[in-house]
Amino acid sequence: MSMFKKLFGSKEAAAPIQQPTVSAANKTINCIQNLDDQEQTLEKRKNLLEKKIDAELQRARELNKQGKKNQALLCLKKKKLMENELTNLDNMILRIVEQRQMLEGQRTTVEVMSAMHGAAQVGKANLKSMNIDNVDKVLDDIREANEQMEQIQQVLGAPTGMSADLDEDELLNELEEMEATDLDAELLEPAPVPTNRVPAAKLPAVPTQKAKTEAAKSPEELELEALQAEMAL
């Protein structure tokens, strides 16, 4: 049994859900519309009765003032009958509202269930296209490819040719011997002797006799000497 079958297990095929037909949906819509029309008709009848009740009550008061009690009582009886009918109308309107709400709720539920059923069918189709056995095979192929790649990398990373014959332990021993030799040479080398000599300070240069003589001459004398030198040439 594959990994996915172990994980999800096997389920018995559930009974298919019957989708609502277009005619059934249309019947529901028509029925709701019919209930709305009936409610409007009853509301109109109710408004008319309320006006008649007010009129009979007003007439009974006028007849009673005129001393016509029998006619006033007749108006009150009519009023009472219309009030009873008004109560019945209220009850019928309430029943219509309840029936309409029930149908609207059923319609919403059917639409939601239809959408969920469609989504479930699409999900089943997707699972069939994937095929759990094929998924297991793909995973096995991926694992096999990874193992082969690891083997290839190990082969490529292994030393070949002359480097494969080199003994790393021998090279490490040689490196340790070199480090020990360098350390012994450093220990045997004498330490440098520090010197406390102070560098001699530079003395100012002593001017020569010629410089002293030239410095003692005036500018006029120097100019005269230059003129004599030109005439000699």
Rank of each mutant, 00 (worst) to 15 (best):
Q66D: 05
A125L: 07
D169C: 04
Q153N: 14
I32G: 01
A25T: 05
E220K: 00
E104I: 00
K51C: 11
E50I: 08
M1Y: 02
P207Q: 13
D167I: 05
V110N: 02
E111G: 03
D141E: 15
M116K: 14
R95C: 04
P190V: 03
L42F: 06
I152D: 10
R59N: 14
G105R: 01
L48T: 15
Q71I: 06
A115Q: 12
L49I: 09
G157Y: 02
M162Q: 13
L227S: 11
V206K: 13
T160Y: 01
T108F: 03
Q19V: 13
M82G: 02
V97W: 05
K27R: 15
N88M: 08
K51T: 15
V198C: 03
K77S: 10
Q19F: 12
Q228L: 12
G105Y: 09
I93R: 12
E230A: 09
L63T: 00
A119D: 01
K80F: 13
N88I: 10
A24D: 03
E98M: 08
L81I: 03
V112R: 14
C75H: 03
R95G: 06
E98G: 09
N47W: 10
R197H: 11
E150M: 11
D136C: 09
Q40M: 10
G157Q: 04
A158F: 02
D37A: 08
N134L: 10
D184N: 12
L89V: 08
A14K: 05
M102T: 12
A226S: 06
A229S: 09
N173W: 12
E98D: 06
L127T: 11
L7A: 02
T213K: 07
K77W: 09
G118L: 03
E223Y: 12
N126Y: 02
R59M: 11
L139Y: 03
I152H: 14
D182E: 15
A120F: 05
A211M: 07
A13Q: 08
V110L: 07
